[in-house]
Design a protein around this nucleic acid. Sequence first.
DNA 1: GCCGAGTTGTAATAAATTATACCAAAATGA
DNA 2: TCATTTTGGTATAATTTATTACAACTCGGC
Lengths: 288, 288
Amino acid sequence: MTLDESATISERIRLGLGRLTPTERKVAHILLANYPVAGLETVSEFACRAQVSAPTVLRFVSRLGFASYPDFQRALRSELEQQVQSPLVKARFSLESTTPTGQLLNRFHQSLADNLAKTFRSVPSAEFDAVVDIFSDRRRKVLTIGGRFSDALALYLSFHLRIIRSGVSHIGGQSANWRDHLLDLGERDCLVIFDIRRYAPDLAELAAIASDRRVGIVLFTDQWLSPIAQKAAHILAAHVPVPSRWDSMVALLALVEAVVASTTERLWSTAESRLAALETMRHVPRGG
Amino acid sequence: MTLDESATISERIRLGLGRLTPTERKVAHILLANYPVAGLETVSEFACRAQVSAPTVLRFVSRLGFASYPDFQRALRSELEQQVQSPLVKARFSLESTTPTGQLLNRFHQSLADNLAKTFRSVPSAEFDAVVDIFSDRRRKVLTIGGRFSDALALYLSFHLRIIRSGVSHIGGQSANWRDHLLDLGERDCLVIFDIRRYAPDLAELAAIASDRRVGIVLFTDQWLSPIAQKAAHILAAHVPVPSRWDSMVALLALVEAVVASTTERLWSTAESRLAALETMRHVPRGG
DNA sequence: GCCGAGTTGTAATAAATTATACCAAAATGA
DNA sequence: TCATTTTGGTATAATTTATTACAACTCGGC
């Protein structure tokens, strides 16, 4: 099995993601989400960041086709070197950066653009496709749920999916009642969890139960990966830091929209009539 | 001799350049010319690149104020991690544009970045400030509501505001019941409406009623402006087109988060204790 | 021309890192 | 349920790396 040496390392990782063991995949995701810095650390630092043991990191690197860890780092550095060739473009298009508010907006925009770039750079195509595959499969039921803030995204996703297909629900209400929803799900079905920093214990618990029941978990999370990542079949991670007291869900929403766009395209031929039917229902006059 | 820890390393080098010996200066220049990769190599690789001996490199690092070479590397990495944001990134590290999915993600990302830029460039600071002013004024009640999809953002906004202040609600449920909520609002209060393309007639109706009652309307809408714009006291518009069957709410969410960030900052001194109280309540065990 | 402060490289040493062998635990399938 | 395979961590060995001591060299001043 010879890998294409010309490919960038991040590409190599994304392509080889399928051949990795679960824990190795965790390492891969951490690296992609913190590319390339994580790989430039020592093995143990990297391992610690990914919450795995050092040998796992080494096995990961080895499976990528590198002869040794230093070899791997050399490759990363040489890639970084080429990338940095272009002069450090700092100057930015700016609106009124004179006013305090203008500056704030500028900084905020900067961070968001950044988060978007990093996020899309690190999303493995295979992972993205896998999620779209699942959402496009009408035989699989889909349940969505999220944390305190991210639940809005879970809701948004379920709205969109419900328009183009059946069998989609959003889990709301008291967390005590969540698990009841799982009763309806079987091995082929799918639980979509949104969980970002200040990870919700309630969600982790739900994920554990779902995992026990062999329900496939699709996880939308931040760059540091929610603990649920261990139980998840597929992970889509977004970058969330912004100059604010709170984390940003912009990049996460971007991922959701990309998935929705792709799924919609896939199901369009059949969704179209469904949409028309919905439209008709919507215009039926109601009392009030 | 303590150096300013806040300065970037490259800055630190430039400042200290005078105090270095000739050979050390050579090292400094090599590092600046191949920043930061050269410093991420091993001492001997770095030394070889600079055509000096290993101890010279170490003396250089030491004179910069670092306790050890690994320490120096850690600093470089952490700088890189933060800085990987703005520069360049796009071109080099971009994801597999070879695969169809890679192309799709690239196009999508491109559109979103574009929307963000256009949105932030066109937001009037005064309008932004005005909205923050309103949200920061605890005497004003705030009601949020949105359309089919944008309601998720309305919900998100209300969640955030409710954490830092009282008097915030989200209007849900049947549109027939919406107007009941307006009974609670007076002239000084505020109705926040999210309305993007395929503008909802229901919302326009609600806006008309609110306007009649002299309730101030804050409108989050798309670049073409919902018809509600005529009734609105303040408008924040975002760009929404993406290569998808649906419009994107990413830039709109970005605006919401910017407003929330600013409002939070404004109210923080008092919100902090409120947050602590909420946290306590949250941890009270519940049945189940 | 010799001396001494300052500078640089060589070589030996100490410290860390990476790599491996092995075992336990989990997953898988009959 | 049990046997078999896969997977992941621990402990340790092997290697590389950073560090230090010291000697050689350079350059000014006397």
